[in-house]
Write a protein that binds this DNA or RNA. Structure first.
Length: 517
DNA sequence: CTGGATGAG
DNA sequence: CATTCTCATCCAG
């Protein structure tokens, strides 16, 4: 069977990574313009400085440095507390909105953390300023662009100009400087983005990617974290911090060799990344996250379980408030999760979760939610290794709302269904889009891949349950404006074209019609 | 489905 | 080594 995502990713892409320079510190400068960029600024969370502006870095303040050490290196460090991420989230969202406005579909925009954004500009128009073939003045290059494949070079020169204008928009509309990497893949864009910073950008020639990656220290490979590093050192004691990707490739020449060290899933991926190969696509980050959590770490022991509960309730208030202000009406969290961390466990986390029966109406029944949260906490504190966790041993609590969903046919309230359907109808032709994984997000870019897609295959992927039903007609249409394949299903009752994800609610609406009759 | 491990910024 | 305060994905039970 053809794998559409593989086919789509085979065509050369043009990917930008925009990286906000020392994001938290810049947020403080933007919020308080009187704060000079020449004064060293550090952002404090508990007893560490998590990041610092460039003035502070020049004075020896590093990331995740103890406050004590930072002040010793730089006694006049201006310290801002960054434990509350609210305004950092707000700036991040503003920057995302700016990028979205200037890079509409079919350009995908994927957020990584609060301060990095991948943009796929493969299908963007050729940038007007790229016609001379020159790069923007603030754009460095890795490798000889002129010597590379002609079409790929045109795409990357244009992409470099798009990165330049994106950064210009972020600066003039939001007030933030950025660095950027431009390349034929997410991997390439990411790895060169930090070569020239702050406030500069770097493009890499496609033919140079493998060579460039080979020369990097092996820990630069994204996805190669502390666990894999530990396994590598155990198998190969000669490995040090200065071991390069090329050295590793000599030790582990095949995907199978990698799989033995890092597992069947991660291993082959790392093997490919080490050769500069990354076929992953930029995926639009959804507006609704999969979880929303608030946590607090505390150094001094909590005296009693009541005090622990008091902390828990404060966090719960905070996460509920966040839900109200940040998430749209259709989102409903289905579960509540409480996580604690103890010193004696070596700072490991343990969690417990439970369904939230009240769903949407917890404002009216907050006590019930509080009781659920307290029950989860008691379960964790009672479930310690020796039978019970010492309350004073707990040094972090996290409360999370998880598994958001839109209300569907499973919710009983019949009156609410037509309203929901009306909302989706108003949202217009945001039809399902095939990404090859059977899900309904992301474009299929490669025209040849589209031509090979088999209709039955598509139907089976999108809604295997309905595909067995002969009455359902599946339509595949090309939306020329958006340059996407839309998969729609014809409703046998009203002849409407319905997106697969709204099918169930559509049917419930018809059921409601029947009941009125 | 729940809970842990891992990795990202 | 993680340390902060998050978020996502994968996997075993």
């Amino acid at each position: 069977m053809q794998d559409p995502s593989t086919l789509a990713s085979r065509s050369p892409r043009a990917v930008i990574l925009i990286d906000l320079d020392c994001f938290y510190a810049q947020c403080e400068h933007v919020r308080d313009p009187a704060l000079s960029t020449t004064t060293p600024v550090g952002i404090q969370q508990k007893n560490i400085i998590v990041t610092a502006n460039y003035a502070a870095r020049l004075r020896g303040v590093g990331k995740l440095m103890l406050v004590h050490d930072a002040l010793r290196a730089c006694p006049d460090l201006a310290i801002r507390n960054g434990e509350d991420l609210t305004h950092y989230r707000a700036y991040s969202k503003q920057i995302w909105a700016t990028l979205r406005a200037h890079f509409p579909a079919p350009c995908a925009i994927e957020r990584l953390g609060l301060d990095e954004f991948f943009i796929d500009v493969t299908d963007a128009p050729v940038h007007p300023d790229s016609e001379t073939g020159q790069l923007p003045g603030d754009c460095h290059a890795v490798g000889d662009l002129a010597g590379d494949d002609l079409l790929a070079v045109e795409a990357l020169v244009s992409a470099s100009w798009w990165a330049h204008t994106a950064r210009h928009h972020i600066l003039t509309e939001c007030g933030f400087t950025t660095s950027a990497g431009i390349g034929p893949s997410k991997l390439a864009a990411k790895l060169v983005s930090s070569l020239h910073k702050p406030n500069l950008q770097t493009v890499i020639a496609p033919a140079m990617v493998a060579v460039y990656v080979a020369g990097l220290p092996f820990r630069a490979i994204p996805g190669l974290g502390s666990s894999v590093r530990k396994a590598l050192r155990e198998h190969f004691p000669t490995i040090t911090d200065s071991t390069t990707v090329a050295d590793l490739t000599t030790l582990l020449p095949t995907a199978a060799a990698w799989a033995r060290i890092a597992g069947a899933r991660v291993g082959p991926t790392l093997a490919a990344l080490c050769r500069g190969i990354d076929s992953s696509l930029v995926i639009d980050t959804p507006t609704t996250p999969t979880q929303l959590s608030v946590e607090d770490a505390f150094a001094s022991p909590t005296p009693s379980i009541t005090d622990l509960e008091s902390r828990l309730f404060t966090l719960l208030q905070s996460v509920l408030a966040r839900f109200d202000t940040e998430l749209g009406a259709p989102a409903v969290p289905k579960s509540l999760r409480v996580t604690i961390r103890t010193r004696s466990s070596g700072f490991k986390r343990t969690s417990a979760s439970a369904p939230v029966v009240g769903g949407l109406r917890w404002r009216a029944d907050e006590n019930a939610v509080l009781r659920v949260a307290r029950g989860l906490l008691r379960k964790l504190v009672a479930g310690g290794v020796g039978g019970a966790v010492d309350v004073g041993d707990v040094n972090l609590i996290n409360v999370a709302l998880v598994h958001f969903d839109v209300p569907s046919s499973s919710t009983a309230a019949g009156a609410a269904q037509p309203t929901l359907l009306a909302q989706w109808a108003r949202a217009g032709p945001r039809a399902a889009v095939l990404d090859g994984g059977g899900e309904t997000t992301g474009p299929v870019h490669d025209r040849a891949a589209r031509a090979r897609l088999d209709l039955n295959d598509i139907a089976a992927r999108i809604r295997p349950d309905l595909h067995d039903d002969d009455d359902v007609l599946v339509l595949v249409e090309h939306d020329d404006a958006a340059d996407r394949m839309a998969i729609l299903m014809a409703c046998p009752f009203c002849a409407a074209s319905v997106a697969p994800w709204s099918w169930d609610v559509h049917m419930v609406a018809h059921d409601a019609d029947d009941n009125i009759d």
